[in-house]
């Protein structure tokens, strides 16, 4: 009972916030609605028992992708009103895409009603006694540890490469050198003179 209520709650909110993502006039609001949609999709995943995907949705999509969107939307001066112009011009293309999506839905329903795929026939069957986070962890950190660490080294190489190719020493900047400032003695900066009266000071 409670699952059903939770499902309809999450599902309604996903659809509603998805629609509002499309219809919101302000692009920042669109991104915020998108984040809400992601959160509710994560809730649906938890209901299915796929808690790992739920966490990924929140960490990767909400934490990284959506925030990136938000930055792009706020920092780039994109004129969204102009982007939305030409609705009629692109209508045939949009209609084509809509038809493709509709056909896909029909196919999916057809496949669904034809009966479930025999999951037991998989070459790598899923162990039923461990949660999926644990199962992924066990594979990733034991069997595939070699590749996992190597993938980390690849990212490191990419980072080193990006720095090598883009970092340069700029001339003409004046950074603050605190040690240099503290080392400076009064004798370096000041000069005591005793000018004759009426002569003035020579600098």
């Amino acid at each position: 009972m409670i699952q059903t209520i939770a499902f309809y709650l999450f599902a309604t909110l996903v659809i509603a916030s998805g629609a509002l993502t499309v219809f919101a006039r302000n692009p920042v609001h669109s991104v915020l609605w998108l984040i809400l949609a992601f959160f509710n999709a994560a809730g649906l995943m938890i209901l299915l028992g796929a808690e790992f995907i739920a966490m990924l949705l929140i960490i990767v999509y909400v934490g990284a992708v959506a925030v990136l969107f938000l930055f792009v939307v706020m920092m780039l001066d994109v004129d969204f009103a102009e982007l939305r112009a030409g609705f009629v011009r692109y209508l045939p293309l949009g209609a084509l895409l809509a038809i493709v999506l509709a056909v896909e839905i029909v196919f999916a329903i057809g496949a669904w009603s034809a009966g479930a795929i025999n999951m037991g026939a998989r070459i790598a069957p899923v162990a039923s006694d461990v949660s999926n986070t644990q199962a992924i962890g066990q594979l990733l950190y034991t069997r595939y540890i070699f590749l996992f660490e190597a993938a980390g080294i690849i990212l490191l190489v990419a980072m080193v490469g990006a720095i090598v190719l883009t970092h340069r020493k700029r001339g003409g900047v004046k950074p603050q050198d605190i040690g240099h400032q503290v080392r400076r003695r009064p004798e370096d900066a000041t000069r005591l003179t005793r000018p004759e009266s009426g002569q003035g000071v020579e600098l």
Partner: peptide, 20 residues
């Protein structure tokens, strides 16, 4: 998978070295 990970590690370093 090992093949691909090794290949990419080598290639990525090579791309950077080419435009060193």
């Amino acid at each position: 998978m090992t093949l691909y990970v090794g290949l990419e590690m080598n290639s990525l370093a090579a791309y950077v070295l080419a435009s060193f």
